[in-house]
Simulated assay, not measured.
Amino acid sequence: MQINTEAKPFDTINVTPMLDLAYVLLVVFILMTTASVQGLTISMPKPSNKPSTEKHDLRIVQVMPGGQLLLNGVGLSIEELEAQLLAAKAADAQMSVAIKGHAKAQYASIVAVVDLCNKLQVNMGLITAKIGS
């Protein structure tokens, strides 16, 4: 048996493993970017062309950073809020609730108020900017 002592350098580089890796990364990237994101389904109300002449009661619920709830500036628990909203709905069936969440409030507290309004079938809206600014 004879050993070839003359080592001949390679002229080419095998790029097949690099292409395999590139294709795998491309497939992973495509799968990750097309994954659907789950969230809340919200149906936005359509604007009306006619001005509203009816005046209905409006309650403002504020969600503070610690999870405290304020109804028109008065602090209360979620159970008390439910009782107050039921009483207000009994007085005016078309009453509305405006929900104002503080920027540092936990989202779960705001969702709890939204769920309560849905359960009571009360008209509601979210305040997204400062009133009067």
Rank of each mutant, 00 (worst) to 15 (best):
L120C: 05
L31W: 06
F29N: 08
I99E: 00
M124A: 08
P17T: 00
T128K: 09
I30H: 01
Q84D: 15
A103Y: 13
I110A: 07
K50W: 02
G125R: 11
M44L: 15
I131Q: 13
E79R: 11
S109C: 03
A35K: 14
L25W: 14
A90C: 03
I78F: 07
L40T: 06
K50Y: 05
D57R: 09
A90L: 10
V24Y: 12
L21D: 10
T53C: 02
L31F: 10
V122R: 13
Q106V: 04
M95H: 05
V122I: 14
L25P: 01
G75D: 11
G67M: 03
V24H: 12
Y107F: 10
H102T: 03
C117H: 02
L31K: 01
P17D: 03
I131A: 10
G75A: 09
N72E: 02
S48D: 06
A129W: 03
L85N: 06
L70S: 07
T33C: 07
L116I: 02
L85Y: 04
V27T: 13
Q94V: 04
L58C: 04
F29C: 10
P45T: 02
F29L: 09
M18T: 00
A91K: 11
L40M: 10
A22S: 13
L86V: 08
S52R: 14
Q121W: 00
Q84Y: 08
V114T: 07
T41K: 08
M124T: 01
A105V: 00
H102N: 15
Q106I: 05
R59T: 12
T34D: 03
G125N: 06
S36A: 11
R59K: 11
L25T: 08
V37H: 07
S36N: 08
F29V: 05
D115C: 00
T53K: 12
H102I: 02
K55W: 04
S96R: 10
A105H: 02
Q38A: 07
A103I: 10
S36H: 10
A90T: 15
V111F: 09
A83L: 12
G75H: 06
D20V: 13
Q38H: 06
Y107H: 12
Q94A: 15
S43N: 12
V111S: 07
A88D: 04
K89Y: 05
H56R: 11
L126A: 10
A103N: 11
N49R: 08
P45N: 04
L116C: 03
S36P: 01
L25A: 13
F29P: 01
G67K: 05
L71F: 04
V113Q: 01
S52E: 07
A22V: 10
K55S: 10
A91G: 04
Q68D: 14
Y107R: 12
K46E: 14
A129H: 10
I99R: 01
I30S: 14
A88C: 04
G101K: 04
M18R: 04
I99D: 00
A108N: 15
L58Y: 11
C117V: 09
N123V: 00
M44A: 11
K55C: 01
S96Y: 00
I131H: 01
V63G: 02
Q38Y: 05
A87F: 06
V97T: 01
G125S: 14
G73H: 06
N123L: 07
A108S: 15
Q62G: 08
M32Y: 07
I42P: 01
L71D: 02
A22E: 05
A35R: 13
V122H: 04
L86H: 13
E82Q: 13
L85K: 15
T34A: 09
Q62P: 00
